[in-house]
Nucleic acid binder design. Structure first.
Lengths: 103, 103
DNA sequence: CTTATAACTGAACGATTGCTCAGTTGTTTG
DNA sequence: CAAACAACTGAGCAATCGTTCAGTTATAAG
């Protein structure tokens, strides 16, 4: 691997990492993930909990689903979402430590 | 705290967390941070290492400096940057584990 | 079948982002 | 001093982002 020899991580790794950080960089998405840490929720639950439109939530869930951060379970006309990745919780924990220790 | 009782983290915490993730969500900035993990570097070093303009690097360094991710040391006309936050390295490590374990 | 409800979707919008360009500041060298 | 060099800066631009809006699909109830 040429890139590694020059001291740089290869593009694919960097883009994958950046993408992971990006999902969590939007307050709405991050709040959704934080809420799902506590319990499984349907779209309308999330919308009313965050005070945003049901459409906005739906758009974000599609993204979170595409990046495999959440999984869904259908029950009648409702769709329940829950977290699908235990690393994400670690990530949030470490970041919380970081934010906590700066003024 | 009313928000916490309703099961949501307060706005300030969420925005702080999101901001942290956001800095690392851009491939250019992330590559800079990864490079600085290995050694202290000046602006032109970073620019040539990443293959981007010196101006672009300068703009990003200002941001990284404002968020206290890097510190700088002046030596003649050159400015050497280095990491100023050990939590960031933990964060990257955890994220790497996440990226590594998905297909 | 019709109505109501939950979720999804594409288009369009304003806001933000990261870059380039041109020019400035500060330091060193001749 | 002037010239060269490293870094910084603001304005402007294209691209991306997150939302709203209007409409669709799917399921359930009357």
């Amino acid at each position: 691997m040429r890139a590694a020899r020059r001291g740089l991580a290869d593009r694919e790794t960097v883009f994958g990492l950046a993408e992971t950080f990006k999902v969590l960089s939007d307050p709405t998405r991050l709040t959704i993930v934080l809420a799902l840490q506590r319990s499984e929720l349907c779209v309308l639950d999330i919308a009313s909990l965050l005070g945003v439109s049901e459409s906005a939530v739906s758009h974000q869930m599609r993204l979170l689903k595409a990046l495999r951060l959440v999984k869904h379970r259908k029950e009648g006309k409702m769709v329940f979402y829950s977290l699908d990745d235990e690393h994400i919780e670690d990530l949030i924990r470490v970041a919380q430590r970081h934010v906590g220790e700066r003024r």
